[in-house]
């Protein structure tokens, strides 16, 4: 470290690194986004895709593939990856628990249980058919019940981070059991649609869902960014945060509400996609540190990149088949996560 620089200049160097990381993620995302529009398991070739994308080839069926199917799908991957990345991070910060994420806390599986109840008991064929009992409000309701339950437990019983993670396992088992029982008594058609619903599958993406998702992510992101100073204080514990003027209960409630909302919407639209909520924030914490103002957007951007990449893999790994992307994120994410844990290096200075 160059000591001839003033403290503020040294701090600026650090901030510049974070900004460069953000810019790098943003540029990578744009490149991968366009790449994703051009790649598919079958049908349209790469060169035809390029000429269609740039308006050289105006064949209407090609345009339909690129601008409807692939664009919707890639946009869904982008926005849902972003949503899961920030949702996981916000849960980790607010529960002060590095193990928190929509999937590890059981929030995803609760949302899935809500959606299953909606499909099987209320016969919700598409997600807008039965207003109150359709999949979105039901998924949201159950994910909020779960996150409230976790917050209450971790506050009143002073749960340790590992105890919270274990509660997440218990909640996941419980909700999975309810889902199984419902499926067991369901008719064949409803069973099929509920099982299909549980796959994390981006082929279900459509324009309407993407718009809802974009609006929700945008609103949540603004709220989270406005709270970023408060999150920085929360890293040092509730007591220090309170003494620094943070109204911790309000911040925590609003944050977890929106984090759960993003998770519930994602599950309603494309099913359960695990690992991004835990993987993306952990990688970014490694690279740019914990400062929330930069960590929040970068976790989101990396989440988008991971999900689009996994989606590309899911489309090309078996020719003419689209694997559910949830399977790909878990298969790639789990070993990668182990790698991060093993390679963890923290040295005591002084």
């Amino acid at each position: 470290m160059n000591n001839s620089l003033s403290p503020f200049e040294q701090y600026k160097i650090n901030i510049r690194k974070k900004r460069i990381a953000l810019l790098f993620l943003f540029v990578s995302l744009i490149i991968i986004f366009f790449f994703s529009l051009l790649i598919n398991s079958g049908g349209l070739s790469f060169s035809k895709s390029i000429s269609t994308l740039f308006g050289i080839d105006n064949t209407s069926s090609y345009k339909l593939i690129i601008f409807n199917i692939r664009l919707n799908r890639t946009l869904a991957a982008l926005i849902i990856g972003f949503a899961l990345g920030i949702s996981g991070l916000i849960m980790q910060i607010n529960l002060r628990n590095p193990l928190a994420s929509p999937s590890t806390l059981g929030v995803s599986s609760s949302a899935l249980m809500g959606a299953t109840i909606s499909i099987i008991l209320f016969n919700d064929k598409n997600i807008y058919s039965a207003p109150i009992f359709s999949t979105i409000p039901m998924a949201l309701l159950f994910s909020l019940i779960t996150i409230t339950f976790i917050v209450v437990l971790s506050r009143t019983k002073k749960f340790s981070p590992s105890a919270v993670a274990v509660s997440g396992i218990a909640i996941t088992s419980f909700t999975a059991a309810i889902t199984t029982i419902l499926q067991f008594f369901a008719s064949d058609t409803l069973l099929a649609s509920s099982v299909h619903f549980s796959f994390g599958d981006l082929s279900r993406a459509n324009q309407m869902n993407n718009i809802i998702m974009i609006i929700s992510v945008f609103v949540s992101l603004i709220i989270f960014m406005l709270f970023s100073n408060k999150y920085n204080a929360i890293y040092y514990g509730d007591e220090l945060a309170i003494s620094l003027g943070v109204n911790i209960n309000v911040v925590r409630f609003i944050s977890l509400f929106f984090a759960s909302l993003l998770c519930a919407l994602s599950v309603s639209f494309v099913g359960v996609i695990g690992f991004i909520g835990i993987l993306s924030p952990h990688i970014m914490k490694r690279f740019i540190g914990n400062e929330a103002r930069y960590l929040i957007p970068s976790s989101g951007l990396l989440g988008s990149i991971i999900l689009i990449l996994c989606d590309i893999i899911s489309r090309i790994i078996i020719p003419n088949f689209n694997l559910p992307v949830g399977a790909v994120t878990a298969i790639i994410g789990a070993p990668f996560f182990f790698f991060i844990l093993i390679s963890k290096k923290e040295q005591k200075n002084d």
């Binding site: 403290p7 040294q10 701090y11 650090n14 920085n232 890293y235 040092y236 514990g237 914490k285 540190g289 914990n290 400062e291």
Partner: peptide, 10 residues
């Protein structure tokens, strides 16, 4: 507490 905030940020 484990915190990855820097000294300046803290």
């Amino acid at each position: 507490i484990e915190s990855n905030l820097t000294v300046y940020e803290t």
